[in-house]
Computed example of a mutant assay.
Amino acid sequence: MKHNVIAAHKVIGTIIGIIVFIVLFKYLAIQIGDTSDNVTLAHAWLSLITAIFGPISGAITAFVGHATSDTLTNNGTAWWTWVIADGLFGLFIGLVTKRLGIFIGKLTTRKLVLFNVWQLIANIVVWLIVAPLGDYWVYNLSLGTAFKEGLILVIVNFLMIAIVGTILMKLYQHFFVE
């Protein structure tokens, strides 16, 4: 019985996570200059979702949230290289939060610093390797453009997660974790 309650909790949490991710990603985003990149709180939210529900929930939340947002924005089409990259990002930071045991015991400064170092590494791998190379191979986008947009996302996502994601985790720990 306990396993079923935990599984239902993760499914419902993931669905809510996806809905909030879509709203943050699509409707509360600010475009960065002449790029297709946006400043959004979606990845800060994703860091909390992964810390609560784990890496599979994080991957599903980012993948489905990004694909849905793209589909709503781009006349029914998704930019699949970035959707896949976002799903991988959710998986990576989910694995990090699980490994660090973010909400097991006290949420220490050490855990938060390690989390932010690892989320920076995940951002670099996903947005400076996976997404740009995917854009180059699949969409024939120039490597210069792809890497420029990837670098912008590394910086923006890192800062949003380091600041807002950390605050969300601290608030969650304070109000919901014994």
Rank of each mutant, 00 (worst) to 15 (best):
I22W: 00
L114Y: 04
S47R: 13
G33W: 03
H66D: 08
V96H: 04
F103S: 12
I121K: 15
I60V: 09
V96A: 01
L91T: 03
I102D: 00
G165N: 05
I15S: 14
N116Y: 02
A51M: 14
L72D: 01
V96C: 05
A62P: 03
Q119V: 07
N4H: 04
Y27L: 14
L151G: 10
I15V: 13
F25T: 15
K98A: 10
A146S: 11
A85H: 01
A162D: 03
K10L: 05
D37N: 08
L91W: 01
E178N: 04
K148Y: 15
I93A: 01
V5T: 02
F176D: 00
F103T: 11
L159M: 08
G105S: 02
S47M: 11
I163Y: 12
W45A: 00
G58M: 13
D135N: 07
H9C: 13
P55E: 09
I56D: 08
V177E: 08
Q31L: 15
A42E: 03
G13T: 00
Y139D: 01
T81E: 10
L128M: 14
Y136C: 03
G101Y: 03
K2R: 07
Q31D: 07
L171V: 06
V125Y: 01
A162S: 12
R99H: 05
L128E: 04
I163S: 07
I60Y: 09
G165K: 03
I56W: 15
L168M: 12
K148M: 14
T73I: 10
G65W: 06
W82M: 04
T35V: 00
A51G: 14
F115S: 08
L95M: 11
R99Y: 12
K26W: 11
T14D: 09
I12S: 14
A62D: 02
I30Q: 08
L153S: 12
L112F: 10
V177G: 13
K26T: 06
V64W: 06
K10F: 07
I22C: 11
F92C: 00
N123T: 09
T40F: 14
V39H: 04
L95E: 00
L151Q: 02
L141H: 14
F92N: 05
A78Q: 02
T108N: 03
T81S: 10
H174G: 11
A29C: 02
L24M: 10
R99L: 12
M169D: 06
G58S: 10
T40K: 14
L48V: 04
G165P: 02
T68M: 09
N4T: 10
V113Q: 03
A7C: 08
Q31H: 12
H3A: 08
L153C: 10
L24R: 09
Q119R: 12
N38Q: 07
I49H: 03
D135R: 08
W137P: 04
T145K: 13
S36H: 13
I104N: 13
H9W: 06
V164W: 01
G90Q: 05
W137Q: 11
I129F: 15
S36A: 13
V23C: 06
G165W: 01
A131N: 09
V5L: 12
V11Q: 10
N116P: 00
R110W: 13
L95I: 02
A51Q: 12
K98M: 14
T71R: 09
V177L: 09
F63P: 01
A62I: 00
